[in-house]
Measured scan of single mutants.
Amino acid sequence: KWTITVQGEEAIKWAIKVAEARNLDYTVHIDGDQAHITIE
Results as ranks from 00 to 15, higher is better:
K1I: 08
K1Y: 10
K1E: 04
K1P: 08
K1S: 11
K1R: 13
K1A: 10
K1N: 07
K1V: 10
K1L: 07
W2M: 05
W2Q: 02
W2K: 03
W2F: 09
W2N: 02
W2A: 02
W2P: 01
W2T: 03
W2S: 02
W2G: 01
T3C: 14
T3P: 00
T3G: 03
T3V: 13
T3L: 08
T3S: 07
T3Y: 10
I4D: 00
I4R: 02
I4N: 00
I4W: 13
I4Q: 02
I4G: 01
I4H: 02
I4F: 13
I4K: 01
T5N: 04
T5Q: 06
T5I: 13
T5F: 09
T5W: 10
T5R: 05
T5S: 07
T5G: 02
T5L: 09
V6T: 02
V6E: 01
V6A: 04
V6W: 03
V6I: 10
V6L: 09
V6C: 11
V6H: 01
V6M: 05
V6K: 01
V6Q: 01
Q7N: 07
Q7A: 08
Q7K: 13
Q7P: 02
Q7E: 08
Q7R: 13
Q7V: 13
Q7F: 14
G8L: 05
G8R: 03
G8H: 02
G8F: 07
G8I: 10
G8Y: 04
G8M: 04
E9I: 13
E9C: 14
E9V: 11
E9L: 12
E9D: 10
E9H: 11
E9F: 12
E9S: 12
E10V: 09
E10S: 09
E10T: 10
E10D: 11
E10A: 12
E10I: 10
E10R: 12
E10C: 15
E10H: 08
E10M: 11
E10K: 10
E10W: 13
A11L: 10
A11R: 11
A11Q: 10
A11E: 06
A11P: 02
A11D: 04
A11W: 12
A11G: 07
A11N: 12
A11F: 10
I12N: 01
I12S: 01
I12D: 00
I12E: 01
I12R: 05
I12G: 01
I12V: 05
I12K: 04
I12Q: 02
I12F: 08
I12A: 02
I12Y: 07
I12M: 08
K13F: 08
K13G: 05
K13L: 11
K13Q: 11
K13I: 10
K13N: 07
K13E: 08
K13V: 06
K13S: 07
K13D: 04
W14P: 00
W14Q: 06
W14N: 06
W14D: 04
W14R: 07
W14C: 14
W14M: 09
W14S: 04
W14Y: 09
W14K: 06
W14L: 08
W14G: 03
W14H: 06
W14F: 08
W14A: 07
A15F: 15
A15K: 02
A15H: 05
A15C: 11
A15V: 14
A15Q: 03
A15W: 15
A15T: 05
A15L: 12
A15P: 00
A15E: 02
I16H: 01
I16E: 02
I16Q: 03
I16D: 00
I16W: 03
I16A: 01
I16K: 03
I16P: 00
I16R: 03
K17R: 12
K17S: 14
K17Y: 11
K17M: 13
K17A: 14
K17G: 11
K17E: 12
K17Q: 12
V18P: 00
V18N: 07
V18K: 05
V18F: 15
V18M: 14
V18G: 04
V18D: 08
V18H: 09
V18T: 08
V18L: 13
A19K: 02
A19I: 15
A19D: 01
A19S: 03
A19P: 00
A19G: 02
A19V: 14
A19H: 02
A19R: 01
A19Y: 07
A19Q: 02
E20R: 09
E20D: 08
E20P: 01
E20G: 05
E20W: 09
E20Q: 11
E20N: 09
E20V: 10
E20F: 06
A21F: 10
A21N: 10
A21V: 06
A21G: 06
A21M: 12
A21R: 07
A21L: 13
A21H: 07
A21P: 00
A21K: 07
A21D: 13
A21Y: 12
R22C: 15
R22Y: 15
R22T: 14
R22E: 10
R22S: 15
R22A: 14
R22L: 15
N23M: 10
N23G: 15
N23W: 07
N23Q: 11
N23E: 08
N23V: 03
N23L: 08
N23C: 14
N23D: 07
N23Y: 07
L24P: 03
L24S: 04
L24H: 04
L24C: 13
L24K: 04
L24N: 03
L24F: 09
L24W: 15
L24D: 03
L24T: 03
D25V: 15
D25F: 14
D25Q: 15
D25Y: 14
D25N: 14
D25K: 15
D25P: 15
D25E: 13
D25L: 15
D25I: 15
Y26R: 00
Y26P: 00
Y26H: 02
Y26D: 00
Y26E: 00
Y26N: 00
Y26M: 03
Y26S: 01
Y26I: 10
Y26F: 12
Y26T: 02
T27W: 10
T27S: 10
T27R: 08
T27F: 08
T27H: 08
T27P: 00
T27K: 09
T27D: 04
T27G: 03
T27C: 09
V28S: 02
V28Y: 05
V28A: 03
V28M: 08
V28H: 01
V28R: 02
V28I: 14
H29V: 15
H29I: 15
H29G: 03
H29Q: 12
H29M: 12
H29L: 13
I30N: 04
I30R: 12
I30D: 03
I30L: 11
I30H: 07
I30S: 04
I30V: 09
D31M: 11
D31C: 13
D31F: 12
D31Q: 10
D31L: 09
D31K: 08
D31R: 08
D31H: 10
D31E: 12
D31V: 13
G32F: 05
G32H: 05
G32T: 03
G32K: 05
G32C: 07
G32Y: 03
G32M: 04
G32D: 04
G32A: 05
D33F: 08
D33A: 08
D33T: 09
D33P: 06
D33H: 08
D33W: 08
D33S: 09
D33Q: 09
D33I: 08
D33L: 08
D33N: 11
Q34D: 06
Q34T: 14
Q34L: 14
Q34I: 15
Q34H: 12
Q34R: 13
Q34K: 14
Q34E: 09
Q34W: 15
Q34G: 09
Q34V: 15
Q34A: 10
A35V: 12
A35R: 05
A35W: 12
A35M: 09
A35D: 01
H36S: 10
H36Y: 14
H36E: 08
H36N: 05
H36W: 14
H36R: 12
H36I: 15
H36C: 11
H36P: 01
I37N: 00
I37S: 01
I37V: 06
I37D: 01
I37P: 00
T38H: 08
T38S: 06
T38D: 03
T38F: 06
T38I: 13
T38P: 00
I39A: 02
I39W: 10
I39S: 02
I39V: 07
I39H: 02
I39Q: 02
I39L: 09
I39P: 00
I39R: 01
E40L: 15
E40I: 15
E40G: 11
E40D: 11
E40K: 13
E40N: 14
E40Y: 15
